[in-house]
């Protein structure tokens, strides 16, 4: 379940985020929906570490293998008698290997990116077209509820679930809506109401 608030300016969006956090929602639950990129931390702070580049690397290595097999392997498996010329050619194998490495890496980057983004989703998620016009969406994903944990110093931020999480989801949602409205949201959309 997700609750989205639409703000016409970034100041009020920022206030909303601040109030949400104050209320007990954690940063991991809050994200901004914007049609342009804002520097991290301006509105919300997100996890900056990504893994898809390792995926790119893996694809590149796979591509190198594929390229080598394509150039050298096919020549080996389907030999053509070429006098005393070697069956497998040195330079061409290198070139083809290189090109396929790059191809796989490029494709891998895109696939990895989407995988990491979790796109495309089959689920319809809360959204408002106003975002495209420069409005800012602040989205809160509501925890299934019932297990509030205090965010002590020894608790890692991503394991931390705020106090508000102890409430039932509906209540969490309406709390968030209230906060955002109070901060100046043009409108709020909760997921189950779509």
């Amino acid at each position: 379940m997700e609750v989205l608030g639409i703000f016409s300016d970034k100041e009020s969006a920022g206030i909303a985020v601040e109030h949400l956090i104050k209320e007990g929602f954690v940063e991991r639950q809050i994200t901004s929906l914007t049609s342009v990129a804002y520097p991290d931390g301006v509105l919300v702070r997100t996890e900056q570490r990504t893994w898809f580049r390792w995926f790119t690397l893996a694809c590149g290595i796979a591509g190198a293998g594929a390229g080598f097999l394509l150039a050298a392997g096919t020549a080996w498996l389907y030999p053509v008698k070429t006098g005393d010329k070697p069956i497998i050619a040195f330079y061409p194998t290198g070139i083809v290997t290189y090109e396929l490495t790059m191809l796989f890496a490029l494709v891998g980057t895109i696939i990895g990116m989407f995988l990491e983004m979790g796109l495309p989703t089959l689920r319809k998620r809360v959204y408002d077209p106003l975002i495209a016009e420069g409005y800012i969406g602040i989205s809160v994903s509501i925890h299934s509820g019932g297990e509030a944990v205090a965010c002590g110093a020894d608790v890692l931020p991503r394991e931390c679930i705020g106090a508000v999480a102890a409430l039932p989801p509906d209540e969490q949602a309406s709390r968030a809506e209230e906060i955002m409205k109070a901060a100046g949201a043009v409108r709020t959309i909760a997921e189950d109401r779509i």
Binding site: T82, K85, A89
Partner: peptide
């Protein structure tokens, strides 16, 4: 020989 992409031109034993 090497420039033919399909081995139509090749070297015979």
């Amino acid at each position: 020989e090497p420039v033919c992409p399909v081995y139509a031109s090749y070297h015979n034993p």
